[in-house]
Simulated assay, not measured.
Amino acid sequence: MKRFFRISLLVIIAGIFIYTLFYLYQKSQKQPQVFTTETPFYGDIINKSVATGSIIPREEVELKPQVSGIITEVYVEAGDIVTTNQQIAKIKVIPDMVSLNNAENRVEVAQLALDNAKIDYDRNKALFDKNVISTSEYQRIDLSYRNAKQELAAAKDNLSIIREGASKKGGEVALTIVRATVPGMVLDVPVKVGNQVIESNTFNEGTSIATLADMQDLIFEGKIDESEVGKIKEGMDILLTVGAIENKQFNAELEYIAPKGVEENGAIQFVIKAKVKLDSADFIRAGYSANADIVLSRKDSVLSVKESLVQFDDGKPYVEISTGDQQFERRDVELGLSDGINVEVLSGVEADTEIKVWNKAG
């Protein structure tokens, strides 16, 4: 019985050993590699450089008040279309007490001067009518009287401007009314009724009442890397992709390339600007981010292959074409324009040629 178990154990061990040898042999055998093929195709090849930026109006106009005070009325809101001289807001003047006091004193002094000049004028007028004084003497008195009246009018006008923000001499012209200086769309109204505003002067740019811009005259402003700036020039076509507008591209024309770069994150960037070409139905909001594809060169509907199918031997491009079942031969090709993914084929293959998809690692 023991002998039976001993023989059985030896048979099992021998079987495991033989199976292991067979398994290792099978693993050592190289599996045949099966290659797939692809055919050339007709497509558009666009060699482009990419810049990121945003779409902004070419000109933005900020409206500033000519007097300081409190906003009492706002006539527009963001998105409204305005014309030149249209009323935007109204300001209630809060006069400076020192300036107001000086203006009132000036009026009083001018009134006293006028009263005195009138007494002198009336007395000399009576004497002139009786031929007691000469004409030249009368003209001098008359001129002083008229100057006194003019000084009083100017003093009252100055007081009216300081107190009310409007000149009586100016008629309808009032500094308290902020008007549009250009036609366009209202982009922003940062003030509300009750806000205090400061006038624009030599020492202060003033409070912005509203921002206006022509939304049909837009530009793309972005930055491009120094490695790409040498490939572009003014007048090139640009395709704009706006992140907020899906499935649509806008045409633009490169207008400006900055002569000086700016360092950002260790790389030199150059500012570029391009005029956006809009149709009458197009509307793009100011500030949209966009990517600009600057078309360096382009060919439409040309015979192309994927660059991954092309191999190189001493710098000479070639592909392997199918001649039978898993049989391939080398075929030299002449390449044209490339976009980094697809490349134009000038000669060497036809549209129905089956090209080997090769595994470089294998």
Rank of each mutant, 00 (worst) to 15 (best):
K130W: 00
K192V: 13
I13A: 11
Q327F: 09
D96F: 01
S338G: 11
L303N: 00
S134I: 07
E350A: 12
Q29M: 10
T72W: 07
G53S: 04
G315R: 04
V11S: 09
E350L: 09
N158T: 11
T241M: 08
R298M: 10
W358L: 14
S304N: 10
S338M: 07
E334Q: 00
I81M: 11
R298W: 03
S28N: 15
Y256F: 12
N291G: 01
Y23W: 15
K223D: 11
S134A: 11
F22D: 09
G79K: 09
V132P: 02
N247H: 08
V67G: 00
R331C: 09
A103I: 00
G170I: 05
N105F: 04
P183T: 13
F283E: 15
D96L: 00
Q86D: 07
I94T: 14
A244I: 04
Y23H: 12
S304P: 07
S167F: 07
G315K: 08
L346P: 05
G79N: 10
I224P: 03
D115C: 03
F128H: 07
K275Q: 11
E104R: 08
W358K: 13
K273V: 02
A155S: 04
I55G: 03
E255N: 09
A117H: 02
I238M: 07
F17W: 14
S301R: 10
T207H: 01
V191R: 03
N158L: 11
Q87Y: 10
R6T: 13
I272K: 07
K30L: 13
V76G: 03
K260W: 11
L24Y: 15
G15I: 02
L303Q: 01
D332F: 10
S99H: 05
L114T: 05
E320R: 12
Q26K: 13
E246S: 15
L278T: 03
Q216R: 15
G15W: 06
K356A: 01
P95E: 07
M1A: 15
A252R: 02
A244V: 11
K30N: 12
E253D: 10
L254H: 05
K260H: 14
N195M: 12
K273A: 02
S136C: 04
K48T: 01
V276G: 01
R298I: 02
L21K: 10
V50Q: 10
E350V: 08
A244C: 05
Y256M: 08
Y138D: 02
K30V: 15
R106Q: 15
K231M: 09
D282E: 06
I7V: 13
E221R: 10
N247K: 11
L152Y: 00
K92W: 03
S49V: 14
R179S: 05
L239N: 13
R285H: 10
K64L: 08
I133H: 00
N47D: 11
N47A: 09
V242C: 06
I71T: 00
V61G: 01
K306D: 12
L212N: 06
M185T: 15
G324R: 01
A113P: 09
G362R: 15
D325L: 13
T241H: 12
N251V: 01
I198T: 12
L254K: 04
G315A: 00
G287F: 08
T323M: 05
D188Q: 12
Y23K: 14
V319K: 00
E164P: 06
V262L: 08
V173I: 13
G171R: 04
N102G: 03
F5D: 08
F283G: 10
N105A: 13
V276F: 04
S99C: 05
L21M: 07
G171E: 09
D142C: 03
T52Y: 13
